[in-house]
Write a protein that binds this DNA or RNA. Structure first.
Lengths: 256, 256
DNA sequence: CGCTAATTTGATGTGATTCAAGTGACGTGG
DNA sequence: CCACGTCACTTGAATCACATCAAATTAGCG
């Protein structure tokens, strides 16, 4: 309900979806007024999606990019024996498949992990904006470099920390990334993602995911429902997740 | 011995080090003759390095990039309780810290994992070449996007496969990347990296690393010495590592 | 109110860790 | 050129974090 009315709002005032993208770019790179105007004029074809249907499939050669407007999407890959690793979670304002601009073949799948709204922009339109405003091209390059920095941090998380720390770490990351686009509500945020999906992001089983959430709750760090996460003790959570936000390369690094 | 004479060779014929970089860029992107000439003219300050001394440290703000000329380097991060995750291994021709061109602060450490030779290029020189030949700028962007694709694949490897498969997978990857710059010798390649370092790349203990190497040898897939890796059965190795080279985005994808 | 999917909980198995004690390879200096 | 010291690697035993299997509970939706 709340979601679909948001979407309607966005569609009636057609500039709003682009504003999220602008907000995101501003959080990592200076953007001039003229550039903002150019971004606002980018045509967005809006779509509503549900989990279970891929946005782009591995092996495809897309001719457009996708901007997350509402909800959460993920990048994933499968092993031949059925394992699924989620290697990125996107929040509104992100461009999950910006790499397709210069890498023809998709080497991963892109899918919603909550009901969500996305906007599509043709590659050529992005190309034009970059040609006209080279600094925007640099901003997008920088965006992809930050994506890579986040990959690196996830690898540290998965390779070196126990499940408890992994979860704490990701919650810290999401808190900061959502705050950067103004989508936190005090110390909590909307996050209607199933534990099975999260388990695939941490490389653990969904059973263990449930146990870890339980431990985090029992220690008074988090409060989790099916739709929201509330951080009860930011300092302890940051400590438990060994979290240092440097890798997010945000201009302003304020916590909750 | 062999190494230092190589270095002398490279230094006397000053174009050689740059040729490796060119070979690497050509393996992922078309490069014109004029662009090759520009790359050849890039000034390279050569240095010989040993493991144990970082090339760039986390938190620094470098003003130059590093090109690997001989040997192997790695990107790593540490957890507060002493764990180290290696999240990338670089082969000659790679530019490990190309991201520093647009991301001021280093969010990782860069270090040799074998004795190696690198060349340094000032950011401004790279910037100039990119301004003059925009297609080279795109090639470098593409380069960083492929780095990211490799991160994604490592995450799948670490998160979803058992140690045995992880090792098989990486050997396949190294084989193909080295072949792309002409550094394989039939079905084997020089790889003087300690098992402790590899263990940190796989997120396992060095003890287990030794056991896994033993299993791979016993099954007749690999032959490993302290300085070289020989692939005895490419098909079986690929199978064991569930290896699909799409993510390397190489122009020509021939196996050993 | 009842159905379905998500989550929780318990019991048991396993891949990998840790600790500890070897063995082997290699460079150095006598 | 051999004895020695160092560092890398190997091997065994005990332990642990997490997986798997199975069943019970809960939350949301029509």
């Amino acid at each position: 309900m709340a979601q679909s009315s948001d979407v309607n709002l966005l569609m009636t005032r057609s500039i709003s979806p682009n504003d999220l993208l602008i907000r995101r770019l501003q959080s990592i790179h200076p953007v001039s007024n003229e550039e903002i105007r150019a971004l606002r004029d980018l045509p967005l074809e809006i779509a509503s999606l549900e989990p279970g249907h891929d946005i782009v499939r591995m092996g495809e050669r897309p001719t457009q990019c996708c901007v997350v407007i509402e909800g959460f999407t993920c990048i994933y890959k499968l092993t031949s024996d059925g394992g699924r690793q989620i290697m990125a979670i996107h929040v509104p304002g992100d461009i999950p498949d910006i790499q397709s601009l210069h890498l023809g073949v998709m080497d991963f799948g892109l899918a919603p992990i909550s009901s969500c709204t996305v906007g599509y922009i043709p590659h050529e339109k992005i190309q034009q904006v970059c040609d006209t405003y080279p600094r925007l091209g640099v901003a997008l390059w920088r965006e992809t470099l930050i994506d890579a920095a986040i990959y690196r941090d996830w690898m540290l998380n998965i390779g070196q920390r126990e499940a408890f720390g992994r979860v704490a770490h990701l919650v810290c990351e999401l808190m900061m990334r959502l705050k950067a686009v103004g989508l936190t509500e005090g110390s909590s945020f909307k996050f209607p993602v199933t534990q099975a999906n999260l388990a695939d992001a941490f490389g653990i089983s969904s059973v263990h995911m449930s146990r870890v959430y339980g431990m985090l709750a029992k220690q008074g760090l988090l409060l989790v429902t099916r739709t929201h996460i509330t951080v009860l003790d930011w300092d302890e959570l940051q400590e438990a997740g060994d979290f240092d936000p440097t890798y997010l390369h945000l201009e302003r690094n304020a916590p909750a």
